[in-house]
Amino acid sequence: MSLPLVERETAASGVVPEVPPYPESRMHSHIPLVGEAASGVIPLGYEHSHAGQIATAISLGELAVGDRLPAESELADQFGVAIATIRKSLAELRDKGLVETHRGRSGGTFVIKVPFPTSNQVSQYLDGISIVNLRDFGDERVTISRGIVHLACQRAQAASLQALERAADRLLNAEDASAQASEYSRFHTQLAVAAQSPRLLRLQMRLLSEITSLLWSPGGAGMTPALVQRDHEVILEALAQRDVSNAQQSMERHVQDGIYRLIDAKLTLQNRPETE
């Protein structure tokens, strides 16, 4: 399963077009899955794995608000499970307020909300993972992000830089943690688009799917737009100057800062009893 990269990218600008708003919805014949979702890891707080996978696709922006999900029979085919199983997952997504189902000729199941975990879910998740796991994730994201900004420095044209600036502005104006997380994700996805590497874009989306809600949730790193804006501005300036080493250093600092904040958040959470 791979991302529909070509569909969403116009050859001329390399910019991902805005998704048409509901009710002129896009229709999908399958759920585009990436990263953790594709490997079957159930994201935070989902009882049914396919509900979690679909929720991840929505949180990544692969399915936008207003998009129509594939028919139940198509989903059953895609996941290789019975229709009854898919219905349970869709019911869970409805219960969580992420989708709604309409009857009739123009009916179907539509995305109505981008999921964002509760602070409590994020705290529980942080409590359960180790610091060394966070460090290792940070190592991977630093490495991939440095590679992406390197290529973006060499390959980004004015249109890509403008798209990035717009994404940075949207983040600054986003109202709540959930919207901030989604705009943050778009900025960093856009960077990988500017790097012109489909493989790196896929890697980037997997990394973002793992980290974004942890960074923006008040139960996690509790990032603020003002804080991140400073980093984004330095990165954008370096991209405009095609200053590879400055772009890489700023990106590395930005990624590490998020990881250190998560480690601190985890440490303040716990007062574990000692064993052995």
Partner: peptide, 19 residues
Amino acid sequence: KVDTLEKCLIPILQKAPNG
């Protein structure tokens, strides 16, 4: 395992100045 060592030793390390 490193993650087990974390569970055992971090409560001790956290008692250092500034944790």
